[in-house]
Design a protein around this nucleic acid. Structure first.
Ligand SMILES: [Zn+2]
Ligand SMILES: [Zn+2]
Ligand SMILES: [Zn+2]
Ligand SMILES: [Zn+2]
Lengths: 357, 357
DNA sequence: CAAGGTCAACATGACCTC
DNA sequence: CGAGGTCATGTTGACCTT
């Protein structure tokens, strides 16, 4: 039994209470709905499909009945049309036009979670160098690193590159439209290293740390630079991998890290503006991750492990804030890209002409 | 081990000996090939697909790797492109252009059998009222038949209608292009009742004989009209159903019945022209059915049962030739459509204004 | 012959009109 | 609001040109 089935606590029900814009979803494919069409809450696409094809005869060529989604709706006209009919679409002239099929709030909530999950997956995957698609195409090559400075420089580049991608993700991530770029930036900076460690979890392989371009850093080199912290990072990455997160789930998980409550003193110090929006958004992402994990694996209570993971990565993030000073004190030995410097608070000399390869 | 694997006896090898037109098949999807493209024997469609998409990156969304066929080639671009590459398609500028991938005669034979089977399936299904698609949509309704004349009239109409469909099938059936309509007609008439019995096999249900429009004739009425012959017909239909023929296989099976050797005296009497073409065509269809049955069920030697079935239906056909005189002698009691009259040799009074409903 | 271009046919879905 | 129309967009594959 999914937590969703509690009618009194659905997103849909809060909508009915007038909180937030009303967004409805197509009961055929789950895409955003543009209202009722042929008696059924449906999207423009399914509406057009039914208008064109309501009296066609298609034949499904698959063994098992197709489950229609936003992504596969064009794969089987037969099952799409069948679904249209099943959910009650009809094309009566005007006379005996049956009543609209009423809105099912629980279904709408489910569809909303799925719609958002899917948006996040697309967005996250296209701004993520360790996506399984790209991992497959990666050509691994061991890096020869003469000293710690070289190794650290590699990580500076890696982190800078990953944050650059993540910022693009943040720019369009759903449910965060109303947050100002400044607030987003403050939150991102607070948890930048956490974010990197989570996102780079697939890089921790048996034979070394995989850079995004396929370069592999031997564990010895890695530990030479990160020391004790490195051991924690590796252990944490393993726990993350063992969760078997989908890319959509990682996206939401990272949001949960970033959207943790911010202490009052930090609000003041950073000039963070909209605390209530932060709280609200955190709650919504939390519900989404809960839905995702419960749906994927109803047996194990995966969501229960999330809080522990977040605390663990918070620890790593804090430790890193101390060790980062190693770079700051030796700033002239490194080529530090502006974004990296900004994120980790190197206020002083960062040359303009420094470039990231 | 398929009989096909005998290289010295492939259709492909006879082509190499200069017998017949050379037809080649796309090694990617099995459609007719228009020659070598990008190094590989392929069709216009796969050629165009590879030209447009050779450097694209697609992602297969299915669990199991897709098997590309003429019919499904547009369903998974990823696997289609993969197959293009696997069979050796390449788009080198001009310089190090690898040698053409040589023709595999065994593969070509297989593809030819499959191509023809598929053509026959399409053609047969669209000219067949007992196709499983139409059977599904059939609404059954028990017929009230007051006397044998009424029952027989129903069968006259059924047979006439089925033969009409079959003639359309014959008109475009592959491998028979070179046979004259006159010769086709002679053969069809010889075995018209056999053809009907085979094609109407799905009509023999537990509760009666199903007419094409869904009308059901009780077995008692059926036997009142057909007597002993009816028992043979029913038994034969059961055997046919137990073969679990695909529609393509029924199409070929019917051709085998029709293309049986014609005795010399009948050649003379009917004015049949091209006996050698008849023999040759019979052999080709025979090979096709053998291929189809062996591929579908390599364990049971289904093809071995074919000769027996043909002899059985020949017997029924001959018995029917005698009982048909019942109609001829009472011709005025019936409405006999011209095609029916022609096929069963009612040379005399068939009124011009008789129509088939 | 085969590589590449062309384009009619088709399906889709965002947007518009009433 | 929603039914219906519109049309830009993208893909396909038969046919043509070189
Ligand atoms: Zn839809
Ligand atoms: Zn389907
Ligand atoms: Zn092909
Ligand atoms: Zn595939």
């Amino acid at each position: 039994m999914l937590p969703l089935n509690n009618v009194t606590n659905t997103v849909e029900s809060s909508k009915q209470l007038g909180i937030g814009k009303v967004v409805r979803y197509c009961v055929i494919c789950g895409d955003k709905s543009s209202g009722f069409h042929y008696g059924v809450l449906s999207c423009e696409a399914c509406k057009g499909f039914f208008r064109r094809g309501h009296n066609s005869e298609f034949k499904c060529k698959y063994m098992t009945p197709c489950v229609i989604t936003m992504e596969n709706r064009n794969d089987c006209k037969a099952c799409r049309l069948k679904k249209c009919r099943e959910v009650g679409m009809n094309k009566q002239p005007q006379s005996l036009q049956p009543a609209k099929v009423p809105i099912d709030p629980i279904q709408q909530d489910k569809l909303e979670f799925e719609w958002i999950s899917q948006q996040i997956r697309r967005l996250y995957s296209s701004n993520y160098d360790y996506s399984s698609d790209r991992m497959r195409l990666m050509t691994i090559k061991d890096l020869q690193l003469e000293n710690n400075t070289k190794t650290l420089q590699h990580f500076i580049n890696e982190i800078n590159s990953d944050i650059t991608s993540f910022v693009l993700f943040l720019k369009s991530v759903p449910l965060l439209d109303d947050m100002t770029p400044e607030d987003k930036s403050i939150l991102m900076k607070r948890h930048a290293f956490s974010i990197y460690v989570v996102r780079s979890a697939p890089a921790y392989t048996e034979n070394g740390f995989l850079c995004m371009n396929g370069g592999r850093i031997a564990w010895q080199k890695f530990y030479d630079v990160y020391g004790e912290l490195g051991i924690k990072m590796n252990a944490f990455a393993t726990e993350i991998r063992e969760m078997n997160f989908t890319e959509s789930e990682i996206g939401v998980f990272v949001m949960l890290i970033m959207l943790q409550p911010i202490p009052v003193e930090d609000v003041v110090q950073t000039g963070f503006q909209n605390v209530s929006l932060l709280t609200e958004t955190h709650t919504r992402f939390s519900k989404i991750l809960n839905y995702q994990l419960t749906t994927r694996d109803p047996e194990n209570r995966l969501f229960d492990k999330i809080q522990g993971l977040i605390e663990e990565v918070n620890t790593i993030n804090n430790l890193h804030k101390q060790s980062i000073k190693l770079i700051e004190t030796n700033i002239t030995s490194f080529s530090v890209p502006p974004l990296f410097a900004d994120v980790f608070g190197f206020l002083d000399a960062v040359l303009d002409d420094q470039t990231v390869e």
